[in-house]
Amino acid sequence: MEQLINILLLMLSSVLVQNFIFSKFYGICPFLGVSDKPATAAGMGMAVTFVITLSSAATWAVYYGLLVPLELTFLKTIAFILIIAALVQLIEMFLKRYLPSLYQALGIYLPLITTNCAVLGAALINIQNGYSFLYSVAVGFAAAIGFTMAILIFAGVRARLQFADAPKSFQGMPLVLISAGLIAMAFSGFSGINFF
């Protein structure tokens, strides 16, 4: 029971306090790249959640099952990026074959995820903090939910920004970055919350 509460608190903290986008800067490229419409943002968020949850499990298993016994832990970066690339490819093939409707929704985002630092970042954080298997999967899932929430909030903001009459120099990326900064300011309010 206590463990369950711990996991829930850890998850809440990964969503709000340690938010991937607004406090750790993992996955900024897709965050800025595909957040211009709420629909694409939701698709990207779902695809990332799917991949991070599975890759947290897979990288944990490979690290403690293969790299630690063989004393090859210094190869974890190469091993993890290969696992993630292979996993993304497998998920893509699996969805195409068995869940074509989901593949239609997520298909175009999946190849981009290989080079999304949120996925590799989540895997490395789990190892760095020495989480157990259950913790790793739970924290990975929660971090991905935090990413999805951030990208959805921001897509809503950007939909409004399209009608903003900004000075010429601020149009495009500068305005997007500054609005992200304002949201990050709101999120930094969570940093006072201490769950432990």
Partner: peptide
């Protein structure tokens, strides 16, 4: 803080846009 990173980069990007224009 993280918010400052976004804000500073945003203003720098605007300055770059202006100087390029």
């Amino acid at each position: 803080l993280p918010a400052g990173a976004f804000l500073t980069l945003g203003f720098l990007a605007a300055a770059v846009n202006r100087s390029r224009a």
